[in-house]
Design a binder for these strands. Sequence first.
DNA 1: GACATCACG
DNA 2: GACGTACGTGATGTCC
Length: 933
Amino acid sequence: MTSTFGKGCHLHLIDGSAFIFRAYHALPPLTRKSDGLPIGAVSGFCNMLQRYVTDNHGADAPTHLAVIFDKGSHTFRNDLYDLYKANREAMPEDLRPQIPLTRAATEAFNIACKEIEGYEADDIIATLAVQARDAGGRVTIVSSDKDLMQLVGDGVEMLDAMKNRRIDRDGVFEKFGVFPERVVDVQALAGDSVDNVPGAPGIGIKTAALLINEYGDLDTLLERAGEIKQPKRRQTLTEKRDQIELSRKLVQLDRDTPLDFTLDDLELRDPDPDRLMAFLAEMEFRTLTRRIADQLGIDPPVIAEKPAQETAETPPEQPPFDAAAYECVHDADALRGWIDRIRDRGRVAVDTETTGLDEMVAGLVGISLCVDAGSACYIPLTHKAGATDDLFGSDQLAEGQMPLDEALALLKPVLEDDAILKIGQNMKYDAKILARHGIDVAPVDDTMLMSYAMHGGEHGHGMDFLSDTYLDHRPIPIKPLLGSGKSAITFDRVAVDDATRYAAEDADITLRLWETFKPQLHRAGVTTVYETLERPLIPVLAQMEMHGIKVDRDTLSRMSNAFAQKMAGLEADLHDMAGRDFNVQSPAQVGAVLFEDMGLEGGKKTKTGQWSTPANVLEDLATEHEFAARVLDYRQLQKLKSTYTDALQTHINAETGRVHTSYSITGANTGRLASTDPNLQNIPVRTEEGRRIREAFVAEPGNVLLSLDYSQIELRILAHIAGIDALKAAFADGQDIHAMTASEMFDVPLEEMTPEVRRRAKAINFGVIYGISGFGLARNLRIPRAEAQGFIDRYFERFPGIRTYMDDTIAFAKEHGYVQTLFGRRIHTPEINAKGPHAGFARRAAINAPIQGTAADVIRRAMIRMPDAIDGLPARMLLQVHDELLFEVAGDAVDATIAAARRTMEGAADPAVKLDVKLTVDAGKGSNWAEAH
DNA sequence: GACATCACG
DNA sequence: GACGTACGTGATGTCC
């Protein structure tokens, strides 16, 4: 029987974050012996919890106890002020994986462990403290955070566990110069640099307390600010009134946080010895396990002295693969059994089987699940009965399958449960398939993204390769099941037995890869990259892809017809000029006409022995020869028609009327995204004719397309990374960066700059980013190689930091086998120590990767924050084109959306990286993409 | 399926 | 002294 909280009860509330950080900083970086998982903070946390419970037996002993944690990074305070806590340092790499373990530790001690999405721990503490006080009980808040001091009084005290000092009303007065009732007023004026609360500039705690004590409270002070004698203070309080009142809202704790539990749920409980011992043993805390076992009067469990693993590649011990052991789930009872096991384990590998690769169209055929290595099942859902050529049975569902709706209804609570981790290989695919059936999968882990974070640049990240490499197991190939060519079938035509072996194995492999990769992430130093740049991108991209962009078929169709007509005319002209028929689309045949029939000099052959006729060669010939000019015209139209105006029409989704690209998170080694099916990152823009294709990308009626793009982001990042003061200054002054470079290099004053000189400097600026060579620049500018080399020498002379950056980067790559972005993304450069021409490529790629990769990281960060930033606005993020984000927004919210999106993009590096160069974003709007860009 | 070409940042 | 040479992508058509 539990009693009701009231007089005589004493609630202790532990600020979980404070405990964790103290434990982290108090202890050396210990790691778990068996696998190297960092465990120091968890160890310290457990020690502190254990001591707290056993040492508190006197008059202040708790009758109720809870550890309160923060949850989610976005709270109502971010809505009030988006810079709230914006300058907080990123969490240390080796602490991040320990956070969930501290919650597990609290639960293992059988202490109430509470957190509420969207609220800070301080608000929950405030609410509980007020409830307990109102019920007539005592409260001890275990924290030294001054933000909590506003709660002290009437039986509420704070305990600074570090100094073992209790803080009452007098203690608060000592700290703030006012009693708890007025602490918020003082904080509103003084601000807080740690949480980035602005306050009143120039006023600290001392002055704030003085003013509050003189005028009584903040409202009175602000009302009567005009009476203040000191002119500076008077001006500040008058002019910064809004900022001060905002600051008050930020520091005021919410005492009405909605709680899904009561004070009575926090009653002190004895730990369950088995559970506690199991946890401590799993963490391999030998000393602590023994000490607590002694206290509980039980025998400590034996913790095996497992040797540290030899290499990071050694997979954990796992049972052999056994396709015969996979279960085919036919009914609800069997599925419930699996769901119980999933809930038990708190995690599950999931894989969906579908009728195709286009997630917007493909039908769901079955789902496979795996809870432990070797223990997997397949749930067939929409397999068709009989042979494919069976005229009568072919569209009937096969027997022994659960109704789709019933299976999904059972799975939905699990797939959406916050406490159950869903593991996938390329989870964005499965998430989109399930989203079309009303299931919002979360939280997720993705083995493909883990591999990308650890091994980007080393190899691909497909499941077959990963399984072969890291599990030493070749998966069942899909080819024999589906066939190929004309006779290929879709997965719903695969026999259920075969499907079970194939699909369940995929889930099994995924789980084993996860068990292999998870502990390796921090050893590879990429936990933060995975957690902040990869994993959170999954739902963001899934939403963008599912929303799609409206493309007007009529516009494209009309353009296709116009192109076809022009091309037919050009083709006839070209045949006339050649004096014979030939295929204009064949470079080899064009070359034959030019260099054989017409006998032109200077033709080069490709490595396969065919005539080479790339655009730059034809351009050189075009001044003299009409034929070459017409071939170029033809090729441009051919490209626009086949790749864009024709192909895009086939990508318009029949249901949505929109085009849904698919972004590959792991597609580019540098961290850039890649867009496929269709590629919407290479829609023409550089020529007038091509740009018109963008007119077909339109907003819905009443809406507008917005385009926001980073201005010169890679050059800005180069200026920061290489520390080029002249470039930094030019960006700070908002100068034309290419003109500045030209002026500096060629000694031409800015006001006398010619377009030609500027063009050369621009080519050099870009060349630098790409790992410039005299040959490459010469070809690009069509100048003699010696002259190009002269420009480069001059450039390095004027901006010596560039040379240093290049040399240092290559030296780093040679030593470590990878280079890094400012955010810690690692791009491996396996060829850097190779001999021969390979090395040249690898060197230039190594020089480019930190720059291109940092820019890619920046826009990823912006994209991940964007849904929150535009929350509440009638706006959607549609596309990403490397340095550009495209939005669709209702006409009346254009300005608000531009403001929110620009702020998010320009501040995307903060707080993890403090750039020496500000990022600026240009915005455009219009009814179509051509206008908006 | 490799190659050449060309669209984008 | 020669070698090849701007970075990162995806889609299309030819040719074998």
